[in-house]
């Protein structure tokens, strides 16, 4: 079963534990500036929205890469960057419609979410379950269930 990150902005408190966990997992340092997931705050903090790569089925970043540094990991379904191959041309950062692939000047390569090889650190670190790692084919399950309950009353 492939899994995917499921993000529920309503539960996010903007604590940035996910950003620290991401940078620690990938760079060995607590540094939100090197995080693959970002929290965006709006309206004086009334809304906070975690945002990262959705691992597109038709991944534009992957198609745009001239040196084939981006490949799909069949085990996790994540699009991963090979640092040995990446030349830092940044074309993938332009191709991505969501901005979730970014250049990292200290390594000279691009960085993006790779689902931590199937055990994403952000989801583990999130204290409110705003980020969870669930069945990729059923990311809507909980919301569907909630709608079912509210539409038909509580099941007996």
């Amino acid at each position: 079963m492939h899994k995917a990150l499921l993000i529920d902005p309503a539960k996010c408190t903007s604590c940035l534990q996910c950003e620290m966990a991401c940078s620690f997992e990938n760079e060995g340092v607590f540094n939100p500036a090197k995080s693959r997931i970002k929290i965006f705050e709006f309206e004086h903090g009334a809304r906070a929205i975690p945002y990262t790569c959705t691992q597109c089925a038709e991944a534009w970043c992957l198609h745009a890469c001239p040196v084939e540094a981006l490949t799909r990991n069949p085990d996790t379904n994540a699009v991963e960057v090979s640092n040995d191959i990446c030349v830092g041309c940044k074309v993938c950062t332009i191709a991505c419609p969501f901005g979730t692939v970014n250049y990292n000047k200290s390594s000279g390569k691009v960085i993006k979410c790779d689902l931590c090889g199937g055990d994403p650190a952000c989801a583990k670190a999130c204290p409110t379950d705003a980020i969870t790692y669930v069945d990729a084919d059923w990311t809507g399950y909980e919301r569907m269930q909630a709608s079912a309950v509210s539409g038909h009353g509580r099941p007996a």
Partner: peptide
């Protein structure tokens, strides 16, 4: 009250966001 909000790194989030 609209929601609660955390400071940096905080797993409590006692802050109140109101209007």
């Amino acid at each position: 009250l609209l929601t609660n909000k955390a400071c940096f790194g905080c797993t409590i989030a006692c802050g109140r966001i109101a209007h």
